[in-house]
Design a binder for these strands. Structure first.
Length: 235
RNA sequence: GAGCUAAUAAUGA
């Protein structure tokens, strides 16, 4: 069962879904990990119908999904922007009492945010115990507001996050700078940029790219050029 | 020992 699951994963990484399926079928028994591996395989290649078909089969076979299964399914719902399906998965999660798990909680927030239910996403964020909220929880919500075009809310959350002592990472900066770019608030973007000056995060390729983009979109081509010139790595 | 959550530009249809 262990090597069979690894084989599913190996085929999936190479995009050989039919081989992944064969590896799954060749196993004489399936556990939660092998079920999740085949669901993830289809999901990663945007075969969401197949992914959910296998989820149904998994339930019928009597194997209980775990936190990883739910994270994979919620990511699929987010990709599909399928709110109703996401709510069904949410119901399963509550039944399994996994809604208190931080990873599942973060995936739920991301799913609701991606599906346009930012209010629901924020409520779930508030329901997380404050000591559970991590950089991913904050970043997910910030990105959700940015996606909705609510740049000010994103900026407020960023400030609150810093005040609560949570260290933003490179993904957080990408999200918040994108928010600045989308609402064209150059001054805010500059202020965020100052957070980066002393840190090592500015060396990240993704952060450098979004700094260039933010300045360019805000109409400050000189700053964009300067940001480009100081990048340690470019693509 | 296997499955593992958040973010980012442009172009084209």
């Amino acid at each position: 069962v262990f090597s069979g699951t690894a084989l599913i994963n190996a085929h999936a990484r190479c995009g050989r879904l039919q081989d992944a399926r064969r590896a799954f079928d060749a196993m004489r028994e399936h556990n939660v990990i092998s079920w999740t591996a085949i669901i993830s395989a289809y999901s990663k290649h945007n075969e969401f119908g197949e992914a959910f078909l296998f989820f149904e089969r998994m339930l019928l076979s009597g194997v209980a999904p775990d936190k990883v299964t739910f994270m994979v399914l919620l990511k699929a719902c987010a990709s599909l922007v399928a709110l109703e399906l996401g709510k069904q998965v949410h119901a399963h999660i509550i039944k399994s009492s996994l809604n208190c798990n931080i990873f599942v909680g973060n995936s739920l927030i991301a799913m609701y945010a991606k599906c346009g239910s930012i209010g629901e996403a924020h409520q779930l964020f508030e329901k997380l115990h404050y000591f559970d909220r991590d950089v991913v929880s904050w970043t997910t919500l910030i990105a959700g507001y940015a996606q909705e075009g609510l740049g000010q809310e994103a900026l407020d959350l960023f400030q609150q996050m810093v005040m609560e002592g949570i260290q933003p990472n490179d993904v957080t900066f990408v999200s918040i700078l994108k928010a600045c770019a989308s609402v064209l608030v150059l001054e805010q973007g500059k202020r965020i940029h100052t957070h980066l000056i002393d840190g090592s995060l500015k060396a990240y390729l993704n952060v450098g790219n979004v700094l260039v983009d933010m300045y360019a979109k805000c109409g400050s081509i000189d700053h964009a050029r300067q940001a480009f010139n100081t990048m340690q790595e470019r693509d």
